[in-house]
Design a protein around this nucleic acid. Structure first.
Lengths: 152, 152
DNA sequence: ATCCGTGCAAACCCTTTGCACCGGA
DNA sequence: TCCGGTGCAAAGGGTTTGCACGGAT
């Protein structure tokens, strides 16, 4: 964990940015909640527990900065708020989402199923893929059970 | 085209809604620009040409209504505005997007490459897929050419 | 007379920005 | 003394909502 902070510190410094206490607190929150997809507000509230004097604007600025440096990935599930995901190892950033339209939960699929498609895109469409996003909307496990129980 | 309006009219009426002049004008704009992914503002401006007295709120309400009835699909490319797509035939709604991060253009792929994946999801994750979205971010054909010319 | 649908403007929410201030090089 | 980074509050942009009006049933 400390090593990952160091890595990020170096990424910042290599571009002329500092790992300020506020930025470090923000990064730590992201590291500690790596499984979630936190919104800026989520991050803000969690950071406030450690560093109560921090401002929301700083969190936004930090997330924006980390996003530009590709330390985090900005996600958008269409619910009106941006969410932020640490890009761990390069292998981790290719994942997909199952979004339940009933209960709103979101599950991740860590496999990357799109490698072959990206090749096909390069060949057929001359499109150089930098990133992709694959989200499925549907009804999750639990909501299906609930439905069938309530139904009859 | 008239037949498609009729179909939509029936979809509305079956749920107790009317195809008002404003709604019809909105639907016609969507039909006439089926290839594009119009934002609410886009639709508003185009509808205004035909029905200058219409209000933006009505357009939003109409698009929301059509979205609930699955006449249109609300899309979100992460650029901060919702976009709306007519769901033509069932075959048409499964498509993917190539979004160029340099020039912002968006190209559609009409193939549906995800059929097998959806089956796999149902089996492995017990997730009932209603819809999906697959967007690729990258550099398009033309921007690649520009880059290589400018580069050296 | 009721009620859905509308236009307008205000409210809303998330996000960005202007500005004065601080603290390290 | 710079200058990047910060907190605060205000502004911004897209979207939603409250409200009174109008038109169809």
């Amino acid at each position: 964990m400390e090593s990952r902070i160091d890595t990020i510190k170096q990424q910042l410094q290599s571009q002329g940015y500092k790992l300020t206490p506020q930025r470090e607190a923000t990064v730590r929150v992201l590291l500690e909640n790596e499984e979630d997809h936190l919104s800026a507000e989520d991050v803000f509230m969690l950071v406030k527990e450690k560093a109560p004097e921090i401002g929301l604007a700083t969190v936004y600025r930090t997330l924006e900065l980390l996003s530009e440096l590709h330390v985090v990935q900005k996600l958008n599930f269409g619910d009106g708020v941006a969410r932020y995901d640490l890009r761990g190892d390069s292998s981790k950033h290719h994942h997909h989402h199952l979004i339940c339209v009933q209960c709103g939960t979101m599950q991740e699929i860590l496999d990357d199923w799109l490698g072959p498609l990206e090749e096909r895109l390069a060949q057929e469409y001359n499109f150089h893929v930098l990133d992709h996003r694959l989200d499925f909307q549907g009804i999750c496990n639990k909501c299906q059970e609930k439905e069938s129980k309530q139904g009859q």
